[in-house]
Structure formats: structure tokens, C-alpha cells
């Protein structure tokens, strides 16, 4: 099975927002789709909670199909980032559309989060981090 042909599980579809799960070796990839606001944010929280329960601390958020994000959605990333890093992982954000990236940028999120253009770049960074740890 190819690198991006893993089974795609989706939870939550009560509104115009969904989170899809993929696994890539030790990395969990969350595919966000639709509009993330104070109503739909509980689905993202549930997804990150599931990652925590499964002890998946290496997370890529793929925002290629994320059309909108409000502060409620941004706040969830902030609530989890320290925990993931303390556990040796990270939340890397990839593939944001320009209008969504502009909101992250406006608030200074690139100072706090690793935001990259493509999911593959985030995977390479996780792989590089892992190799570095194994070498040391």
C-alpha cells in the first residue's frame, strides 16, 4: 500500500466540518475539511483527544480542504501544542489555503507552530527529528 493510500476514517459529520484520520508510520495525520468555528470545534477537540488516548504525539494537521477557521479552532491547537511537545512530538500544520494561512499569520502563529506548505514537508521534518534522536 502506498504512502498515502492508508484507510481513511472519518469521525463527526454533524455539520459543514469533518476530521479525517490517516496514519503514516508513527505520524497521525488529521485531514480537516470545511468550516471550523465555535460550533464545529468539538470535532477537532475529539480528534486530538483520540490522538492523546492513542499516545499519538506526532501530528500533522492537513488544512488543504479547510475553508475557514475562527479563534475557537485556533485555540484548540494552542491547548494541545505544549502537551504534544512535552511528550516528544509536535503538531505541524500543512497545506493551508492562503486565506486561512493569513489568519494564522495575522495572530503570530508561525512563531509558535511549525507551519509548512505541504504535508510531505511535515513528514520529512518528523522523520528528520526521529533520525536525529536515534543518532544521539
Amino acid at each position: 500500500m502506498g504512502r498515502h493510500e492508508k484507510p481513511h476514517e472519518t469521525i463527526g459529520n454533524m455539520s459543514n466540518f469533518s476530521v479525517g484520520f490517516r496514519a503514516e508510520a508513527h505520524i497521525r495525520i488529521l485531514d480537516l475539511k470545511g468550516e471550523l468555528d465555535a460550533h464545529t470545534v468539538s470535532e477537532l477537540e475529539a480528534a486530538l483527544q483520540k490522538c492523546r488516548e492513542d499516545k499519538n504525539h506526532h501530528i500533522i494537521v492537513n488544512g488543504e480542504h479547510l475553508q475557514y477557521i475562527s479563534s475557537a479552532g485556533l485555540g484548540v491547537f494552542m491547548a494541545y501544542i505544549e502537551e504534544m511537545r512535552e511528550a516528544g512530538g509536535d503538531i505541524k500544520i500543512a497545506g493551508l489555503q492562503a486565506n486561512v494561512f493569513n489568519i494564522f499569520d495575522l495572530l503570530g502563529f508561525p512563531l509558535l507552530f511549525d507551519i509548512v506548505e505541504a504535508e510531505e514537508e511535515a513528514i520529512r521534518k518528523f522523520d528528520a527529528d526521529r533520525n536525529e534522536k536515534n543518532d544521539s
Partner: peptide, 22 residues
């Protein structure tokens, strides 16, 4: 302060800043 919010592990508090910025 984004870093303080992250350290507190509680999101929130960004709405007014967004309104003022936009």
C-alpha cells in the same frame, strides 16, 4: 500572549484581537 496561552494549555482569548486586527 500566544506563548502564555499555550503554556496554560487553554485555548481562547483571541477573538477580540482578531476583531481589532481585521
Amino acid at each position: 500572549n500566544l506563548f502564555r496561552i499555550a503554556e496554560s494549555r487553554r485555548g481562547g482569548g483571541l477573538g477580540v484581537q482578531i476583531m481589532r486586527s481585521l
